[in-house]
Amino acid sequence: MINNFKYLKRRSLNLIFGSLVISAFLSCGKSGSPAPIEPVIPPPTASTFANPLMNGADPAVFQKDGVYYYLQTNGSSIVLYATTAMTKLAAAVPKTVYTPTAGAQNARNVWAPEIFYFDGKWYIYYTAGNGADISQRTWVLENSSADPTTGSWVDKGRIFSTSADFWAIDGTVFEFNGSRYFLWCGRPDLTNVNLTQNIYISKMTNPYTLEGTATKLTEPEFNWEKNGFGVNEGPEVLVTSDNKPFLIYSASYCGTDDYALGMLSLKAGGNPLVKTDWIKSAQPVFSKQPQNNAFGPGHNSFFKSPDGKENWIIYHANSATNQGCADKRNIRMQKFTFKADGSPDFGEPVATGLQINKPSGEQ
């Protein structure tokens, strides 16, 4: 509210000033030749937008042929959005592309779907269970249609590593140097007493099968990763233009205001399957900003502007304190840049209601 008030106040002053200037021009015209009147330029609303974009959590974006395909947690089904302008996401017509069979092992708690295009087919990776929390696992859907909003989505079953076949959520795919890797968040305690969540990686044989032993890449170590209880989840890999991978993940329990983003960097020449080849940042790289109405920012995805010139992060957050992992979470996005060492610089969550420039090239 504070930020909105400041913006409206500045806008009102600008309008008053503009009116005085026009009045002065008109007064001068009465005693001599008419003075030219400068046109009144409206606020740049056509080229700006404000967060939040819409309600929701766990946003995921995939770009192909000028279209942004978007998914978020629904709870009971998988709903796909398609748009050519991310600032107009809320206006996109959502389409339910998959609803699990009632009573099945993937029928309840449908979370964090992500969509990819591999080898001429579309794939959606998602989390679901039978209703009991300990049953949550990662699953795969396949669609051979050129347009993922059409055709049939075929259930390819669970995707898992035999060496780490336990509670698993937030699956994603990472392509690097000609290989594909699956990353996910796992909770190894089968008794469901120790709720600590770690991030694992395994090489993929095909889009729905893993090979070899899973590697635990990161676990909660720092205090900022243990608010509520220890959590490392929501892995997303950002590969820069010079082929440097950065693993961005969410830390701490999502029910706290201190849910935040952490980062691992792969060493030059490193093997993604070797834990010691990843360097973990000792501090969060994106965290709450109460003055900007940003509490618990996390579970992000990345995309490029339509002209490919800008990098954007999309994430969810709460607009007030103590709102937890509930329906009040909302979707936000902002541009980010890179530091001198090549690592991403996300800055801080921008204020709700603040007018910021749309992605470059957006129509």
Score class of each variant (00 low, 15 high):
F5C: 07
L13G: 12
I16L: 15
L20V: 12
I22S: 11
S23I: 15
F25K: 10
S27A: 14
C28E: 13
K30T: 15
S33K: 15
A35T: 06
P36C: 10
T45I: 09
A46S: 14
A57G: 10
A57R: 08
A57M: 08
Q63V: 09
K64V: 07
V67Y: 13
Y68N: 09
L71E: 12
N74R: 10
I78N: 03
L80S: 06
Y81T: 03
A91P: 03
A92N: 11
P100L: 01
V110H: 03
F116M: 09
F118P: 01
G131K: 02
E142G: 05
S144K: 08
G151H: 01
S163Q: 00
D165F: 13
D170W: 04
G171L: 02
V173S: 05
N177K: 11
G186D: 01
L190C: 05
N194L: 07
Q197R: 09
Q197G: 04
I199W: 00
I199Q: 11
S202D: 08
K203R: 14
L210I: 00
E211Q: 14
G212R: 01
T213E: 11
T215S: 06
T218P: 02
T218A: 09
E219L: 09
F222P: 05
K226A: 09
N227S: 14
E236Y: 03
V237D: 06
L238E: 00
L238K: 02
V239G: 10
S252V: 04
T256L: 04
T256E: 07
L261V: 10
V274E: 14
T276F: 03
K280I: 02
P290D: 03
N293G: 04
F302W: 08
N311E: 13
N311M: 10
W312M: 02
I313H: 07
I314A: 02
M333Y: 07
Q334Y: 06
Q334I: 05
F336D: 11
D341N: 15
S343D: 11
P349T: 04
T352P: 04
T352K: 09
P359D: 05
S360W: 02
Q363L: 10
